[in-house]
Amino acid sequence: MTNLAMSQESFSVDRNFYDDRNYPRGMKRSGDFTLAEAEYLERYGVALMALAAGTRLPVTEEEQHFVEVCSGNAAVSNTLERAWLKYQNIILTPKQFHTLFGRTKVEADEDTESDPDDLD
């Protein structure tokens, strides 16, 4: 992974990003992200969300590249962009539900019942 080296003006925000709806116990404790990814998302997530949604205009080269990555016009070049795309993929993909029981009850059809002694 590429280390993140960016200017002070890039992705500046005045508060941390928390997604209580999808991560009520925090991103660091979720197991979905590495500690570095969770740290980047918490520190810069407010700016990333605004840039991705178009409610904030990019002011630096790093922010412009991030917007291009989000629109699919550029390749991922650092951990911050990779973490954001991973976050988006996780929250937009429906959670799979696993159970030990089947979804429907299997019922034997009375017409196809056979006698165990009739087996070849």
Rank of each mutant, 00 (worst) to 15 (best):
T55F: 12
E62Y: 08
E81I: 02
T34R: 04
R25Y: 13
M27P: 04
C70W: 07
V46N: 09
T34E: 11
V59F: 09
P58S: 00
Y40G: 04
L51D: 01
A53V: 12
V59H: 06
A50N: 07
R43V: 08
A47R: 10
V46Y: 03
G45L: 10
Q64L: 13
A36I: 15
V59Y: 06
T79Y: 06
M49Q: 15
T79K: 13
P58K: 03
L80C: 00
G26Y: 12
A53R: 14
F33R: 02
L57R: 08
G45W: 04
E39I: 08
G45H: 03
R82L: 09
L41T: 09
S77E: 15
Q64D: 13
Y40L: 14
F66M: 02
E62L: 08
S30Q: 06
N78Y: 01
M27H: 06
G54W: 10
G72L: 06
L35E: 14
L41P: 06
Y23I: 07
A38L: 03
E62N: 11
M49C: 10
L41H: 09
N22T: 11
L57M: 11
V69G: 00
A75R: 15
R43K: 15
N78T: 01
V59T: 14
R82D: 13
A50D: 10
A38Q: 07
R43S: 12
E61F: 12
A74Q: 14
L57K: 12
N78H: 07
R82F: 11
C70Y: 03
E62R: 11
C70P: 05
C70D: 03
R82H: 09
A53N: 13
L35C: 05
Y44F: 12
P24K: 07
L41Q: 07
E63A: 04
A74C: 08
E39D: 15
V67P: 00
G54S: 04
E62Q: 14
Y23H: 03
P58M: 09
G72H: 01
A38V: 01
L41S: 11
P24I: 05
A75M: 13
V76F: 07
E68R: 15
F33V: 04
A53F: 12
L80I: 06
L48E: 01
E68D: 15
K28V: 03
Y23T: 06
E61Y: 07
E81R: 02
D32A: 13
A83G: 10
R82I: 00
L41V: 06
L41R: 05
V59G: 11
G54P: 07
L80S: 05
V69Y: 02
R82V: 00
L57Q: 14
L80D: 01
P58E: 05
R29T: 13
E68I: 04
E61L: 13
A47Y: 02
A52V: 00
R82G: 07
A83T: 08
V76M: 11
P24N: 09
R29G: 01
M49D: 14
A52M: 02
T34N: 02
T34F: 03
T34L: 06
E61W: 07
F33P: 03
E68N: 15
T55I: 14
E62I: 00
P24V: 09
G72W: 09
M27Y: 07
F66A: 04
L51T: 04
